[in-house]
């Protein structure tokens, strides 16, 4: 018997955490945005952040669209659900360069998002287990809360486990 999965979309700037084994957290169509997954394989708590921008300017915002706000927020919510920091398996997906290199409208947002997320994770002493970042294609990302399995998909390609 197949149990129907409960697919929860993590939209732009959102952070979501679940310990329901039926739940699949997903970020759809990541371009320059970064999808950050965390999973505790013992308490089976999974979490995902959909990061849009690298750094909040005023420092006082609680808006999780920024990497420097999203990472601590995800960590805190994972902890509240029973996850233990030392056991976290952290994976990073996205940060593409969708626009032409060398044009004036190239903000390098993708690369800056990846760098900012890496820095905040490093400051929090969280190691990155795997990453699929950069390039110039869009990606979708799924985290299965039951197993911690992470799948990445691009247009014209099938799901690849990360």
């Amino acid at each position: 018997m197949t149990v129907q999965a409960n697919v929860v979309v993590v939209n732009l700037g959102e952070v979501k955490v679940s310990k329901d084994p039926q739940t699949v957290l997903t970020c759809l169509g990541l371009g320059s945005c970064v999808g950050l997954c965390m999973y505790d394989p013992v308490s089976k708590v999974g979490g995902m952040a959909h990061i849009v921008l690298p750094v909040s300017f005023n420092g006082g915002t609680n808006n999780t669209k920024f990497a420097d706000v999203a990472v601590p927020s995800l960590l805190q919510r994972m902890r509240e659900q029973g996850a233990v920091r030392a056991r976290l398996v952290t994976k990073l997906v996205g940060g593409s360069q969708m626009l032409k290199q060398g044009t004036e409208h190239n903000f390098n947002t993708g690369q800056r998002n990846v760098e900012a997320t890496n820095k905040v994770l490093s400051d929090e002493a969280i190691a990155i287990a795997a990453a699929d970042v950069g390039g110039n294609r869009g990606r979708s990302l799924k985290l299965f809360v039951e197993s911690g399995k992470v799948l990445v998909k691009s247009i014209g390609a099938s799901d690849v486990e990360l």
Partner: peptide, 19 residues
């Protein structure tokens, strides 16, 4: 600006402008 032509997922196409 110089145009960029993309064929990809809608979300990823919008990311640059939206961000």
């Amino acid at each position: 600006s110089i145009p960029t032509v993309m064929v990809d997922m809608a979300g990823s196409i919008l990311d640059a402008a939206v961000s």
